[in-house]
């Protein structure tokens, strides 16, 4: 007997329950004239074994979210429940132990590797911190990690400057994998790389994610990368979530005017593609003085008076698909 299931439910079945639940995350930075709300009331969940893409332009707060989750910067409010534990409630010491399970890969493979350390010491720093391997076992582990990310184990004695950008990013990935984490924040891991090298690293990230059943938050500004790589996508603008949902659904049927604009202006390598482009006017407003109500309204082609009055609540428009726009229903019609 064949059981016909919805193709998407297959995916759900293979993936586990919630690993990380971010609830009402806020982060304010002090500024001369008051507080800057870099991240304002951001909520989303990540299921075990999935990749969630976090997209937005500069100033959207996407990097701040990633760093708050690992407490590389301290959040100002909200919770991040990781496998039943609120990361934000942990003491500094407890968090340090917990970081073995959460790792990060940075954007710039040039500034994120210490130029004075050999590759073996860069990779094993976390091993040493957590007291995971010594002597021969340590050397073996380093060689194994280098092989896993596609580098030669003989490279362990070299320094970062001897490597190309793509190879350095492989080292950054090996460092993150060293402690066998369950969850990785990848903060624009391919943005600084040449196009031909980006594809190599994206394939590597996927292979590793599948081989180790990793859960990932993939921060990016390149929408096509996120569409291809991520199970779900969270779209941020000026510190807030505009829309989130399964990536297939969001890309096929974007419901928020900002998501639509973003998708329509992302260049596609096809000169014949005549798309209806929504070119937004103006710039992202200063986070020091964000617009009242909906933060996107000053650039939104559909803004009305009411948009300045209320912060739009997140409304469900489909399974796991949420949009923060008071006009989403009429705009969809």
């Amino acid at each position: 007997m064949t059981v016909v299931t919805h193709p998407e439910s297959d995916v759900r079945a293979r993936q586990g329950g919630t690993l990380l639940s971010v609830e009402h995350l806020c982060k304010q930075f002090p500024a001369k004239s008051g507080l800057v709300k870099a991240v304002d009331d951001v909520s989303f969940t990540i299921r075990r074994g999935t990749i969630v893409g976090l997209v937005g332009e500069s100033g959207s707060g996407k990097t701040t979210v990633g760093r708050c989750l690992l407490r590389l910067i301290e959040p100002s409010g909200g919770r991040a429940v990781f496998d039943g534990v609120d990361l934000f409630a942990l003491s500094e010491r407890q968090m340090r132990t917990c970081r073995r399970r959460l790792q990060i890969v940075f954007q710039d493979p040039y500034s994120s590797l210490n130029p004075r350390l050999r590759v073996e010491d860069i990779i094993s720093e976390a091993l040493d911190t957590h007291g995971l391997a010594r002597g021969a076992a340590r050397r073996e582990r380093i060689a194994e990690l280098l092989t896993r990310v596609g580098l030669n184990p003989e490279h362990a004695r070299r320094y970062p400057h001897e490597f190309s950008g793509g190879q350095r990013q492989r080292i950054g990935i090996a460092r993150a994998l060293a402690v066998e984490p369950e969850f990785i924040v990848a903060d624009e891991p391919v943005s600084a790389l040449d196009v031909s090298v980006q594809a190599q690293i994206l394939n590597l990230i996927q292979d590793l994610q599948q081989a180790h059943g990793l859960t990932m938050l993939f921060i990016a500004h390149d929408l096509s990368v996120v569409e291809c790589l991520c199970d779900e996508v969270v779209v941020m603008y000026l510190g807030r979530v505009m829309e989130r949902g399964p990536s297939r659904r969001v890309y096929a049927n974007p419901r928020h005017p900002y998501t639509r604009a973003l998708l329509s202006t992302s260049p596609v390598p096809d000169p014949r593609a005549r798309r209806e482009r929504v070119v937004l006017r103006g710039d992202i407003p200063s986070p020091l003085d964000p617009p009242s109500g909906c933060v996107f309204r000053t650039r939104c082609p559909h803004a009305i008076g009411a948009c300045a009055q209320v912060v739009p609540p997140a409304e469900a428009v489909g399974p796991d698909h949420v949009v923060a726009c008071i006009r989403q229903a009429e705009l969809a019609a």
Binding site: P7, E8, D10, V11, R14, V195, S196, V197, Q198, A199, Q200, L202, N203, Q206, Q210, S224, V225, E227, C228, L229, R248, Y251, V268, P269
Partner: peptide, 21 residues
Amino acid sequence: CIPDASRDRGAAGERLRLNPI
């Protein structure tokens, strides 16, 4: 190398497979 979901992503749930240089 440029990710294109319509080309590189297979059936539902399949991840993309790029052809890097």
